[in-house]
Amino acid sequence: MPLAIETESLRKEYGDTVAVTGLSLRVESGSVYGFLGPNGAGKTTTMRMLTTLTAPTSGRARVAGASIEDRASVTSRIGFLPDVPPLYDELTAREQLRYAGGIRDLPAETIRERVSALLDRFDLSDDADRRLGEYSRGMRKRVGLIQILLHDPDVVFLDEPTSGLDPRSARTMRRVIEDLADDETTVFLSSHLLTVVEALADRVGVIQDGRLVTEGPLDAVKREAQRDGESEGLEAAFLEMTEGRSE
């Protein structure tokens, strides 16, 4: 299987603080990778490095076949949805999505067609001409997701995509992630909601204090935790791996 994400000894320092160190990951194309860790463990910093928002202090990484030093190549092949969707409150959803397509240099006709199709798919067509400032959190997340899918990226990075969503919106989001994986899009998923990761991920990595403490197929990680403890499931594995770290 070709690799969608490959990192080698990735390290990021902020002054004297080491946010991430010695991070080596291999994520296969078309898979869903669950990236777990307590608050402040280095998940968001890792995502920022992989999406070129921040430069690593040392180490190497390739995303969708391009080195993260080649910002233009990486950004043309990825989509990134942060925890707070990057939207302009003053625009309507349709205007926002046209803008997102425009800054990626998509032809106007393609933007029109894709926006219309994705608004339908995400059940937002009726609200597409309302301003985003009036949208609920779930609706904003959906618009945020649409705008990173407009250019048909090879890899999408989702930071807490289901946090704060009501059950219906969360289920919609889960289905979309499943559809992405079915379409051979690689999904790098960071979430505190272990049930979401458990339901979707092929492989998981657990990061703590900036270091990857375990990594592998979901079942293997669960089995590893089961050997040491009595309980089953990803939650038990997560607690086992990150023991001693306060939330």
Binding site: T51, T52, L53, R71, A72, S73, T75, S76, I78, G79, F80, P82, V84, P85, P86, L87, Y88, A100, I103, R104, D105, Q147
Partner: peptide, 16 residues
């Protein structure tokens, strides 16, 4: 503001 990551993760977004 919060929309900054969208622009920064677009190809050549910073110059644009």
């Amino acid at each position: 503001g919060t929309a900054l990551p969208l622009t920064l993760t677009a190809p050549h977004g910073r110059e644009r």
